[in-house]
Design a binder for these strands. Sequence first.
DNA 1: GCTATCCGGAACTCTGGAGTTTCGTATATG
DNA 2: CATATACGAAACTCCAGAGTTCCGGATAGC
Lengths: 218, 218
Amino acid sequence: MTQLDDVHTSSDAPKLGRRRDPAKDQQILDAAVEVLAETGFDGMTIDMVASRAGAGKATVYRRWTSKNELVLDAVACMKKGDLDSLAIPDTGTLRGDLVAMIRPPSIHDAERKLKVMAGLASMLSSAPELADAANEAIVEPRARINRMLLNRAIERGEISSDTDIQLISLISPSMVAYRSLILRKPVDREFLITIIDGIILPAVGLGPTAPAPSAPAE
Amino acid sequence: MTQLDDVHTSSDAPKLGRRRDPAKDQQILDAAVEVLAETGFDGMTIDMVASRAGAGKATVYRRWTSKNELVLDAVACMKKGDLDSLAIPDTGTLRGDLVAMIRPPSIHDAERKLKVMAGLASMLSSAPELADAANEAIVEPRARINRMLLNRAIERGEISSDTDIQLISLISPSMVAYRSLILRKPVDREFLITIIDGIILPAVGLGPTAPAPSAPAE
DNA sequence: GCTATCCGGAACTCTGGAGTTTCGTATATG
DNA sequence: CATATACGAAACTCCAGAGTTCCGGATAGC
């Protein structure tokens, strides 16, 4: 959060005349994320963001001091839109949980986030703040869910407690990012299932040699 | 290859006076790759490339029509520097081969290529030619080696012929790219060994339950 | 040594985007 | 209705980088 009015909260709001519209802030941030995903940081202009948000360039600069601050806020606010964290199913098996996470909204959300990450990629090494914000908003939510599912599998005794959760939880984010960003191939349900059955489950000792407790047939 | 003098090869070389220096071409291309890795496509200026190559900006434009063409050529020429393709060991086991591929020059080369890829990331979606060149020069060489090692393991009967080579060969490139570009953590020998023993070998049925033929202790 | 050619460097134009200012209008408060 | 404020739009300045031009010096062939 780096908006201009962070310090003075609402104490000095005008007692007369028009008030600043808080909803407009979100419209601008959303527009910034859109443009960021489409054109990247360098291709993005303030005019693009403003016009897409139905605002003027001056309005943007009334609320953020610079393009950098706007992008930083826009990325940081992306994680608010995460509804995945709430709806985590418990199917009784690790494979069931992993497969249940494959849903069209989840896939679409991930691809949009990856486009934003691609647009920021060249700046990550020179802007640590931005890199941290991007990591927190784009990478961590997905990895956090995977870690939770793996911990749940350990608790129910399905997999060994020696499992390298940190490593395993990054398999699907890594391979999805690579396929989408670098190979530019679609990330569909079939691909995700292949990762689960061909890589993740074998890595935690639930490979086809030791069949999964429930229904491995899909 | 998109250089100006692609069509007329050497037939109309000047019979009098100074000749164009071919070595300078490579110096400029190398400088372009360096700057690309350090600052990304948008941060890179022709002046940077020229001065680093010990050349003038005019010299660059004498040989390439535009910044885009220069970058395209620079990326395409990266694959020529691949000496890995020659020195592929045969240790007798898949694990031995994979571990033998872990060498400081190989790691350093991979990180440099990934920085270039990061610098190009935002343009890949809008410049298909560039995306193809980047894929051919950065992604494919590494995946090709992995596919070769896996095929060798199949031939010697070490792993099943049903193995999904396409998928398995992308595990380490994906996880290395993710760790380096997005997590910005170092890619060291320990991490690579963890991937081999914790993910790749289990995925091909050579997990700790079926111990590797040679020495799994490392 | 002569000469055609290429070189590095510097000065140049031109374009586009960051950030600022102005202005007429819309609107909530009183 | 009056007023203070925020608004969208447009015009503005400023600057950096793409691409061009010019020039004195270096160099390979004759």
